[in-house]
Structures are given as C-alpha cells and as structure tokens.
C-alpha cells in the first residue's frame, strides 16, 4: 500500500545549523504516527516544512502522489490542528468553518455540505451557532479539529493538541483522533505526552538533534532498544550516603532523574538481583521507599534520549 505521507532523506538547515538530517517517515491511510523527541529535536521544523513554510535543502516529501515541489496542491491534501484554539472567538463555530472553508477554496453548496459533515464528525452539529468565545474548552477543541478537516485532507497534523488541556477536553481529542483515523485519515501527532502516544499511536518516530533515531510501533521500538530487559527502580526516602551509593553502583544501579531514584536494566530472568541486593548488601532497609520492576516505557526511553541525545 502506498503511504499517504512519504518522507525520504529530508534535510533542512538554518544557515550552517542542520535542524533535520536525512529524516525518513511514512504514514499509511488510517494510521496514527506519533512524532516525539526532546525540545529542539526538529519536530517543529518538520511540521513547518510539511506546511511549506520552510524550504528543505534535500530529500523527497510526497503527500499522496503530490511531490513536495507542488506546494499548493500538496497542501490541499493536508490539514493542520494547531496547539492553540486557532479560531475567531467573535464568530460562531459555523461561521469559523465557513471562513476557513472559503480560504481553502471550498465554496457554495459544497462548502455547506462540508461544514455539516465536519460538524457531524466532531459531534458539534447542535452547538454550531454558539460563538467560539462562549464555548467550553472541549467544544473549542472539536471545532478546532473540524476546521482542519473541512477540505477533506488525506493527512491531518495535530501539533501538541492536548498541551495544557483539562482531562475531559483531552479525552475528547483522543476520541476524535481515533475516530478520524478509523475514517481513513493518516494522522501525524506531535506531542510530548508519551502515555498518549503509547495508547493512541500505531507507530512512533523519535527525533533527536534533527535525526530520526528510531521508528516503528511503540512495542517494537521498546523491544528493539531494551529487548527482554526490565527496568528496576529503587526509590529512596532520602539522599543516600556514599557507602550506599557504592553498593548501588556495585549492583549495576545508576542514578535516574533524582538523587533518590536509582535504576538498572536487567534481563527479565535476572531481576533476582534486587532480592540479593536487599538481602546481602543493604543493611539500612528503612531508606528504601519503593522497589519497582517494570517494562521500560517510552518515558524511560525519552528520559535517556533527552539526557544523551542517543539511544541506550
């Protein structure tokens, strides 16, 4: 099956600074792909390049059968849901959709039908004549999405759609994303919320310092990086003494995000290390608040990449 979005070897630089270095990415119909990475990884540059706001130095980027060079035509096939509520607050939901529809060259009866269809898709038919300024957060998010699908794009880009959003509005957005993918849209989800990525996305693309470090379905990515390893985490009640640190290090633990959090990655068969450590070495049992043995998550992976810029 031919991907809706097919990016190959995309390279973008600002002067001497390379912000995207030979990035590859493909999204198929009905697929949700999460674009993740630390700040400055190149996510925004990739979106801007997709939207035609940055000219790439090299590479191929096709949306459907339309090549990167045909900016206008390509953008007909894309919709964008910005992080902010990109709507005119003094206009009703329907008036907003009509305005954005005309700006996307949809007019007349086709526009009316498209607006109705978009409103139905986001479940806002009964609230279409409420001014956006008077809508709840969830309603605004829905209209925000409806405005992006007016021209029936093949690819829909969500740029941090739930950042700073309350839980009901976030759930609304999640349901919408799922529902739109089920309708056949290819979806690129740019986010920092990794739980959202694990639960929603069919694939991820992890960027760091402009490079695509790894991509694929989240479980495959984690298996590729960590294999059968389990993450063992010890949370301490207080910062440990040097002697205790020496003992932790001797058992392969390294400090995680805080001085009171230590972790090690061992094969699932080797988790007995914890009981051996606790039994033989750790004499001050009161210092241990919590011991966890778990599969590494995308958060674990991201934490590592944020600090090192590389895969573990």
């Amino acid at each position: 099956m031919k991907p809706v979005l097919n990016i190959q070897n995309l390279t973008v630089s600002y002067g001497q600074h390379v912000v995207l270095d030979a990035v590859d990415l493909a999204i198929n119909t009905g697929e949700i792909v999460g674009l993740i990475g630390p700040n400055g990884a190149g996510k925004s540059s990739l979106i801007k390049t997709l939207c035609g706001r940055i000219k790439p130095d090299d590479g191929h980027m096709n949306v459907g059968d339309v090549h990167l060079k045909h900016g206008r035509a390509r953008r007909h096939l894309m919709g964008m849901v910005p992080q902010d509520i990109a709507l005119y607050p003094h206009m009703t939901g329907r008036e907003n959709l009509a305005a954005f529809g005309r700006m996307a060259n949809v007019t007349g009866r086709e526009l009316r039908d498209t607006i109705d269809k978009s409103l139905r898709a986001v479940g806002m038919t009964d609230k279409q004549n409420v001014r956006v300024g008077a809508m709840s957060g969830g309603m605004k998010r829905r209209i925000n999405v409806a405005a992006a699908i007016l021209h029936a794009p093949k690819l829909l880009i969500f740029d941090e759609p739930t950042t700073g959003v309350d839980i009901p509005a976030r759930d609304t957005v999640h349901r919408l994303i799922k529902s739109l993918a089920e309708r056949g849209l290819a979806i690129l989800l740019v986010t920092h919320e990794l739980e959202q990525v694990e639960s929603l996305c069919d694939k991820i693309c992890l960027l760091a310092e402009g490079k695509n470090l790894i991509s694929g379905p989240p479980p495959d990515v984690l298996w590729q990086v960590y294999g059968p390893s389990r993450q063992t985490v010890i949370r301490l009640a207080r910062s440990p003494e040097p002697e205790f640190i020496k003992a932790l290090s001797g058992h392969g633990f390294e400090q995680a995000e805080l001085p009171t959090v230590w972790q090690t990655f061992r094969n699932v068969k080797d988790v007995g290390i914890i009981s051996r450590f606790l039994a033989s070495t750790c004499t001050d049992k009161a210092i241990i608040r919590e011991v966890l043995v778990r599969q590494p998550s995308l958060s674990t992976l991201m934490h590592h990449v944020e600090h090192t810029g590389e895969l573990p």
Partner: peptide, 18 residues
C-alpha cells in the same frame, strides 16, 4: 498569536491573498 495564521497558511491560500 493564536495560530490562525498557521492554520490558514497550511492550506492553499497565500500571504498576499490574506
């Protein structure tokens, strides 16, 4: 400020028309 420009320019319309 509220990304409406991003939305518009992601579509087929250009700055001169806006």
């Amino acid at each position: 400020h509220n990304s409406i420009s991003d939305r518009i320019l992601a579509g087929p319309v250009g700055t001169l028309k806006i």
